[in-house]
Simulated assay, not measured.
Amino acid sequence: LTASAQLCRLAILHWQALGQEGRIINVASRAAYRGDSPAHWHYAASKGGMVAMTKSIARGFAAQQIYAFAICPGFTMTGMAEDYLESRGGDKLLADIPLGRVAMPEEVATLVRFCALEAPPSMTGAVLDINGASYVR
């Protein structure tokens, strides 16, 4: 969270110095809202902080045309997720996802691209879920 905050601050300062529009897309997690296991509460806390930071950036800099979005995926089929699913009994974890599968990296990338290039400025501060309905707010 600290590194993300520092990078966001540097990006904002850069866009302010140039008088340019900017877009920040932070990737958090469904754990920001759903929580996580007691062994991983530090992860959930950092993702909750990421969401709060993104909302604060949106509120603080929208008037300067600096927009911020947070994307909250659930499990995403990366090498790391595959190993985790296998080590924790994948079928049991998949049963908690109504879609019946984890997100593919391309699906998350589509959402990141939309926020970076197409999302209307009025969407600044939005938190977007992509988790197969494993957590619905």
Rank of each mutant, 00 (worst) to 15 (best):
G19Q: 02
R101V: 12
A81C: 15
H14S: 08
I71F: 07
T110Y: 04
P120I: 03
G60N: 07
R34L: 04
S46D: 06
R137Q: 11
R30V: 15
T54G: 12
G60I: 00
A31F: 03
S4W: 01
E107T: 11
L7G: 09
S37H: 08
P105S: 14
M77Q: 10
G89R: 00
F61D: 05
A39T: 14
R59E: 06
M53F: 12
P120N: 06
S134H: 05
Q20N: 07
R88C: 13
S87W: 01
A11D: 06
M80V: 10
S122M: 07
I12C: 03
R113F: 07
A5K: 13
R101K: 14
S134F: 03
V108K: 10
I25G: 05
D36F: 04
A126H: 02
P105W: 07
G125E: 02
D91A: 15
I24A: 08
Y43Q: 08
V127G: 07
S87N: 13
K92L: 13
I130P: 15
G48Q: 03
A119N: 03
F69C: 03
G132I: 09
E82Y: 07
S122T: 08
Y84D: 12
E118F: 02
C8D: 06
L99K: 11
C115P: 05
A44Q: 06
H40Y: 10
A52P: 06
A63R: 06
V127A: 01
V112G: 09
A39Y: 01
F114W: 13
A70G: 08
R23M: 02
A116G: 14
A68Q: 01
I57H: 00
A32P: 09
A63Y: 01
F114I: 03
M50R: 01
W15Q: 09
S134C: 14
P98N: 10
A63C: 07
T2D: 13
A70R: 00
R59F: 04
A63T: 07
C115V: 05
A3Y: 09
Q64C: 08
W41H: 15
W15P: 00
M53E: 03
D91R: 02
A126F: 01
D129E: 09
S87R: 12
M104K: 15
A119I: 02
Y84K: 13
T124M: 01
V108D: 08
Q65E: 15
T78Y: 04
L85C: 14
W15L: 03
C72G: 10
L7M: 14
E106L: 11
E86L: 11
G22C: 08
L85N: 12
S134N: 13
R23I: 03
A31L: 05
K47R: 11
F75C: 11
L7K: 10
Y43P: 02
A39V: 06
V136G: 11
H14N: 07
A70V: 01
I25K: 07
H14Q: 11
A44E: 03
V108I: 15
G79M: 05
G60C: 02
G132C: 09
Y33I: 00
A17K: 01
S56P: 02
A44T: 08
P105D: 13
I24V: 10
G125K: 05
A95E: 15
K47M: 07
A58P: 06
S122C: 01
G100E: 05
G90R: 09
T76A: 12
Q64D: 12
K47S: 09
